[in-house]
Design a protein around this nucleic acid. Structure first.
Lengths: 138, 138
DNA sequence: CTTGACCCTGTAGTGACTACAGGGTGCAGT
DNA sequence: ACTGCACCCTGTAGTCACTACAGGGTCAAG
């Protein structure tokens, strides 16, 4: 393992990231621009692979790009306390919980609207009625 | 009530929609272009108000623009069965439930990662470790 | 007759990619 | 040597549903 030099396509396969996405990460400065081969191909080393894997896992956990930027920069300061890391993770957890609450409320509302539908004609449709304002469309 | 003619700002206040958003809905064909005053101001009637309220409620329930387009067009065919309406609502509910499941899984994962953090130094941080790939960054 | 709140169009930005178009590189097979 | 073909390169524009200007015009009150 750890062959040392990989093309962008290799990185793409290994990390499950699209080639365009890797180039995008480079453009926004999340991944460093790697050295190039004679033919101008990107040649990635193991460090780049590790960094990209880190990014992908953080993305899969729903962290935003800026949060990942912060996490990456913290992960290099080995001696410092990980309180800042903890804070970012907790902040993200709070965001997730907020979205979760919103979505659950949404589901309830949708569910109750749908259950009222007797599937007659549209003129009597409770779904349309729930959306329409009080005095309109008659 | 139902004064008959309103400016875009009135519509904005009554429906809680930003002025720019209303113009955006017109641009994408969700709202018809209203008649204009002598000074080239948009002059909305009650029907436009009703339509915009409908759109806002549907957006609040998380329906996408294309779904709303379909719902609006169905809502005008009073005599047809509301099965199609029901189908759109159920499809949306399924999407919401999918997102909900994803977010709940995410919350679990985040939660368990955060609980492992002993808040020592970054070198020992379980959160960073959970993100980093097996053999990297040493 | 000026001030300030409102309105107009058109364009560009958001987040995190994704999808081309139009070209170059590298290697296997013939 | 030549021909495919898969891969790589840059740069730009598109996605969704808005949002935010810039640079101007309109209108009613004081």
């Amino acid at each position: 393992m750890s062959a040392g030099v990989r093309t962008i396509g290799d990185l793409s396969k290994v990390t499950g990231t699209k080639v365009e996405t890797i180039r995008y990460y480079e453009r926004i400065g999340l991944l460093a621009a790697p050295p190039r081969t004679a033919g101008n191909y990107r040649a990635y080393g193991d460090a780049a692979l590790g960094r990209l894997s880190f990014i992908r896992r953080a993305r899969d956990l729903g962290f935003g790009i800026d949060q990942i930027r912060a996490l990456l920069s913290l992960s290099e300061k080995k001696k410092r306390s990980c309180k800042a890391v903890d804070a970012i993770a907790r902040e993200h957890l709070a965001e997730v919980e907020g979205k979760l609450a919103d979505l659950m409320a949404l589901r309830c509302e949708l569910d109750s609207i749908i259950r009222q539908c007797g599937c007659g004609t549209i003129a009597d449709c409770r779904i349309i009625e729930a959306l329409a304002p009080v005095n309109t469309g008659r």
